[in-house]
Design a protein around this nucleic acid. Structure first.
Lengths: 150, 150
DNA sequence: TCCAGATCGTTTGACGACAAACGATTGGAA
DNA sequence: TTCCAATCGTTTGTCGTCAAACGATCTGGA
């Protein structure tokens, strides 16, 4: 119950709207979660996108920015800035792919792996806090449903 | 573990990520749905926010921009532009609240109700199309889960 | 061989969301 | 009463995201 202000207008309207408009409920919930994720990532000095790039590079191996963009659902033009900052911080190297010199072979460095380990360590606690309103069964349900949507 | 130079995406990485990171799955699904909603609303010449404002005004009666902002989870500064455009199009009137002359009493007009009816008519079809990957039971589950999150 | 089209990474411009600050007005306390 | 903090609507500035266009490079035919 968010006791926001002097609510003179009886019952809140938003819950009704969220029940009727599944798309609005989804967007509003996403915005809240995204804000929490940004705050957490920012506290570590690592953006969400940068975290995901490091994670994918560690699990999949060197990849081009194009593959990173496609798989992480991050626009190409945004990926440029993410890789720029990661490279400048020494967490990533950009080598030209010998087979296709248009593309980079973005590679994670040892400092990058170290930072990733720190960031990954904080993820479970963050997820628990953000989705604490949901039971484990509900989280599995949500995961399956979102998987079908994507 | 990392294969040499990952060139093509034999095994897509994103589904694995989405299964592990519920927050990412939620944000990506929301972005896709939001894009679809924008496209649909734009085709009607009415933004999503404007649609929601008209809908709420029709259901709860004249409201201040503050109440609209709070209940629809739209920032105050964004609400200004939404009400501006609605007023200019004649779908809404802005009258000063006699009890509190700082606030407006935003009121829907008859043309506004007419446009709202058209927009509402297209909503079920849009929802069916957007969430067609989900069974009715899954949609109810998603609705309940999002309700708990919000 | 050469050339047209496609792709990779990048830059640029436009657009929307959010934070902060501002007048106007209200409510409450001294 | 008078004054000060809070609120409503608005404006401004900043930031992140997306579309379009650009050189550099690859690919697939003539």
């Amino acid at each position: 119950m968010p006791s926001t202000t002097t609510n003179h207008t009886s019952a809140a309207y938003f819950p009704r709207l969220a029940a009727e408009r599944l798309d609005i409920a989804l967007c509003r919930a996403s915005a809240a979660v995204a804000r929490a994720a940004d705050a957490r990532a920012g506290a570590l000095g690592l953006g969400v996108g940068q975290h995901l790039v490091l994670k994918m590079l560690a699990e999949v191996g060197p990849s081009s920015q194009r593959v990173l963009s496609d798989e992480l659902r991050i626009d190409r033009s945004v990926m440029v800035g993410i890789c720029d900052s990661l490279e400048q911080a020494g967490h990533v190297r950009r080598e030209r792919d010998a087979a296709d010199r248009r593309a980079y072979a973005v590679t994670i460095t040892d400092p990058g792996r170290q930072l990733l380990a720190q960031a990954e360590e904080a993820v479970p606690e963050f997820l628990d806090g953000t989705f604490q309103a949901l039971s484990p069964a509900e989280r599995r349900q949500l995961s399956g449903i979102l998987g079908k949507l994507l």
